[in-house]
Amino acid sequence: MDKAEIRKRLNDIQSLPTLPPIVSKLNEMVADEEITAVKLGKVIEKDQVLTSKLLKMVNSSFFGFPQRISTVSNAIVLLGFNVIKTLIVTSSIFEVMQASDVGLFEHSLGCATACGIIAKLRQIKNPEEVSTAGLIHDLGKIVIRSELPDEYEAIVEEAEEKGLYMRQVEKERIGFGHGEIGGILARQWNLPERLVFPIEYHHKPEQAPDFKEIAAIVHFSDILIRALGFGSGGDPWVPALDHAAWERIKLTKSQMKEVIAELDEKLMELQDFTLEIKLDG
């Protein structure tokens, strides 16, 4: 299969659940006028299933709000519309992921948690946005898995056999890495560049045209969560560190210790959360 054909496949993705219709409506509302969080919240809350999923996500430990968030408009005020929109857009994909690849699901939640901790440490304005970028950074992997299942299997096998990283084999076999694929998709969904670039460049953050700091945080969080062995990203290895990106967000030894301790504690809570989701069915 050549690159053009893959790109075409990505353009009309069939097997992934389509975007909930509410997303285009919300996009219109936001573009249209000076809309309030309350108004937006009301529209979302008409969909009870979506609302309960959304509230479960925003209350999960990777965002780490001390108080329970009980309404959608509250969530919009606290986390920002970008985050809420991304959670809505990706909620069906996460359902697919939960069912087909628990390891990757846990890897994603763990990465989101690490992103949030480091973003707060670096006093980034909207740390929840960075968490969200971490949550969906490996989106491309799900797409490959569900759209090109034969290729996906071959990629996993070859990576294992030759002891390579997944993305090395992805490039070779389908012409794109999962970062690029995630980027293409995120763009199709009109997610903001603050989220698109970190997804697209999470393995080469310094090449991101903008938002290099967020990309660097996602890059390092991905490494950190794999280092701890939480969840699974396909192959078992800690990815290579981009040292220019590290210079950008560098943590001291004692900061690193703090991050590890806080992350470890939150990961224990996350396990309760994923267990809860499993029990909910």
Binding site: G163, Y165, I223, R226, A227, G229, P236, W237, V238, P239, A240, L241, H243, W246, K253, M256
Partner: peptide, 13 residues
């Protein structure tokens, strides 16, 4: 897990 990056001082730390 670190076997592919064992020459990187930051990751070793």
């Amino acid at each position: 897990r670190f076997s592919k990056v064992s020459s990187d001082p930051v990751l070793r730390a």
